[in-house]
Design a protein around this nucleic acid. Sequence first.
DNA 1: AATTATTCCTATAGTTTTGGTAGAAAGCAG
DNA 2: CTGCTTTCTACCAAAACTATAGGAATAATT
Lengths: 142, 142
Amino acid sequence: MKMSTKGRYGVRAMVHLAVHYGQGPLPVRKIAEKMDVSAKYLDHLMTALRMAGLIRSIRKAHGGYILARSPKEIRLSEVVKVLEGSVAPVDCVDDAGACHQADFCTARDLWQRMQKAMNNVLESTTLDEMAQGQKMKWNNLI
Amino acid sequence: MKMSTKGRYGVRAMVHLAVHYGQGPLPVRKIAEKMDVSAKYLDHLMTALRMAGLIRSIRKAHGGYILARSPKEIRLSEVVKVLEGSVAPVDCVDDAGACHQADFCTARDLWQRMQKAMNNVLESTTLDEMAQGQKMKWNNLI
DNA sequence: AATTATTCCTATAGTTTTGGTAGAAAGCAG
DNA sequence: CTGCTTTCTACCAAAACTATAGGAATAATT
């Protein structure tokens, strides 16, 4: 039940963009540096986020990425969905046809309840809240 | 964020044992047959469940596996824990040392809330409830 | 027009996890 | 002592994951 680095890195990168929202574009190189991960790898994830319409790119010297919308208007559910796909723990939750026993299976009910619980958390959290929380943590270091 | 076949198969196998609780041992072969999965593979999962103390084996002709405790006393959280490990979506949730930025990371707070939401579902569900639900579904087929 | 810092695209490759197979030994009721 | 079952150890193929590499496109700036 682990999330891959796609989801992990991607969410953290989005929080970085949210923290710097309104301060011009942030290049992948800088984000990767801050996060201490491979910039070349983060490249791919940014491309996925761009194609999903969550971020916009400025392709030139001193360019980079910015959020496509205000951090208040981006829910974590969207970010995770792009990078990890559905948070359904098992395929049959989204698609009953994935298992021919799905209709008579209580396990499926359990997976469904787990998915709802996770979605509830992701749906009720915005990037802005994350960015505020992040700033707080950094301020407390002083 | 998908659960592996370990968790999927394991939970369903445990539900089978719960449904037949009190009716003597159930051999892996029969469980696998009902579930339509490889018996040899299910073998491994049963071994893990046995070593965790959730089931007991009767090793002889017409032997098999039985639940080690009453279905009312086995929570799904235990079953999933044995087969999938922690449901933490990211390692840093259980072990802050997994990432040296953990202490100043809001993403970690998010993963933590997701874990709690999932655990809440798994902790509040017993095998007995699952077995009752399963029997209901089958009865409705008539 | 050249420079520069960046995104963007495509290809490749190493490592780990997953999902399963194989075969034989051990236990024990009948 | 036979038959059915668990139990143990080893092995393996395919898929997914986690990158890495190199170069082309872009456009402001010099």
